[in-house]
Design a protein around this nucleic acid. Structure first.
Length: 430
DNA sequence: AAGTGATTCAACCGCGGTCAA
DNA sequence: TTTGACCGCGGTTGAATCACT
């Protein structure tokens, strides 16, 4: 554990990357994918450590990166997300901003946003008015303790999500907003995964729905609250626009009805990544069952890093043909499905437009999606109204109840029945 | 034009987590 | 169960750039 072995090696270049190095790295990854990062520098002919190559790729060379200044919409979103997630979730904040890296957002926060907030009289740490923060003695909660598992989230944040944040923090004990389910359980790595969807999944779904611009508006249009474009396989053709080049999974293998049956328990933000779907990964070693696991058993895509899955190789068995390893093959074919992010639209509008599931996926899945959206909206409304009285059982029951009509929309394949049964069983156990 | 302080941001560092042997 | 390689993340650093005098 600890430092990369490569870091001990001598004669490795450090510091800024030269254009030649960039080109080498780009060419290598474009042709071969990165595979194991530690082997990249050797294969690419670079005098760098693999870690440095990875960082360079993720933060600078990745084709889907958005260049240019942050828009006001993006800044607002960062502030709001920071109010909920705190300093420790830059990667998750970045996941909500396509084409932006956690490093970039972190830098922006430390260099600009903090200052702006202070100028506006807002404590950037607590998101409270500075005077109030001083009075209440709410000291900035930035902690240097990395192992505590705590976040910088101030439970009494008075931001747009302050109440919700407070509510959630009391309900699920600190880090309930982690979109990636696995992360939530990283503190107890040796414990078996719960067989029911954790509260986090629902809470996350609620907050994600809240986050979507459509939720805040009239609610006339309801989209599944993914914050990121879905990916698509370029082989599926007609990928000529921003909305198309973002669909990641291979439509040849895409089974809408199956997806729709397994998606509901999955946190939308857990699904959302810069690259596409990121269903909470189920550790294959644990062989999960139940709702959360049911979805994962059927459908898993590690979209955290377009290439990360291929490096481990051990993850990603699924029944839908979403082969994580396929990322490498995509790269090998020099096909980057995450290119050409539309610059001119503001982030939220673009997200909303790109995430119109009915435009992407027709038929019953779209109907189901809308129903899910409605449900998510109602869940969120319920939570907001209840403020401090979070009733998980009620929400789960409500959710399950609303799934019934959707079930009739489906042709009820075997897999669907199994998943449904597992979901039902799991919810009954809550 | 030169000097200096402030700001930005790419890159590094070190840690915790995961996974396989 | 232990160990070590590796990945990914957040905090920090420092070179480059900018703004001002």
């Amino acid at each position: 554990m600890g430092r990369h072995s490569c870091c001990y090696k001598q004669k490795l270049r450090k510091g800024l990357w030269s254009p030649e190095e960039d080109e080498k790295l780009m060419n290598h990854i474009t042709k071969h994918g990165h595979g194991c990062w530690s082997s990249v520098p050797k294969l690419a002919g670079l005098q760098r450590c693999g870690k440095s190559c990875r960082l360079r790729w993720i933060n600078y060379l990745r084709p889907d990166l958005k260049r240019g200044a942050f828009s006001q919409e993006e800044e607002d979103l960062i502030i709001e997300l920071h109010a909920v997630l705190g300093n420790r979730r830059w990667s998750q904040i970045a996941a909500q901003l396509p084409g932006r890296t956690d490093n970039e957002i972190k830098n922006l926060w430390n260099s600009c946003i903090k200052k702006k907030l202070r100028q506006k009289g807002i404590d950037p740490n607590t998101h409270k008015p500075l005077a109030e923060a001083d009075r209440s003695g709410a000291a900035p909660t930035i902690s240097t303790e990395r192992t505590s598992g705590s976040s910088d989230v101030n439970p009494s944040s008075t931001g747009a999500l302050g109440n919700l944040s407070h509510l959630l923090s009391e309900t699920a004990q600190s880090s309930m907003l982690l979109p990636v389910y696995e992360k939530n359980h990283s503190e107890t790595p040796n414990l078996a995964r719960p067989k029911v969807p954790p509260k986090e999944l629902f809470l996350d779904q609620i907050t994600s729905t809240c986050r979507s611009s459509t939720c805040r508006s009239s609610g006339q249009t309801l989209y599944f609250p993914f914050q990121q474009p879905l990916g698509y396989s370029s082989e599926s053709g007609n990928g000529d626009g921003a909305s198309m080049n973002s669909l990641w999974f291979n439509q040849n293998d895409f089974n809408c009805s199956t997806i729709s049956t397994v998606m509901p328990p999955v946190s939308p933000s857990a699904l959302s990544t810069p690259m596409g779907l990121n269903v909470p990964p189920d550790n294959p070693r644990h062989g999960g069952t139940g709702v959360g696991s049911a979805s994962v058993d059927s459908f898993y895509w590690d979209g955290t890093n377009p290439c990360s899955s291929s490096s481990t190789g051990s993850r990603g068995s699924n029944s839908l043909g979403f082969e994580p390893q396929s990322t490498s093959s995509i790269l090998e074919n020099s096909v980057f499905p995450w290119t050409d992010i539309v610059q001119e639209k503001d982030t939220r509008a673009r997200l909303v437009e790109e995430l119109k599931w009915p435009d992407l996926l027709h038929g019953t899945f779209a109907e189901t999606t809308i129903a899910m959206q409605n449900q998510s909206q109602s869940l969120y409304d319920d939570v907001i109204k209840a403020e401090s009285q979070f009733n998980m059982e009620g929400i789960c029951a409500s959710w399950y109840q609303n799934q019934q009509p959707q079930q009739q929309l489906q042709a009820a394949p075997d897999m669907y029945d199994k998943d449904l049964q597992r979901m039902q069983l799991s919810f009954e156990n809550i």
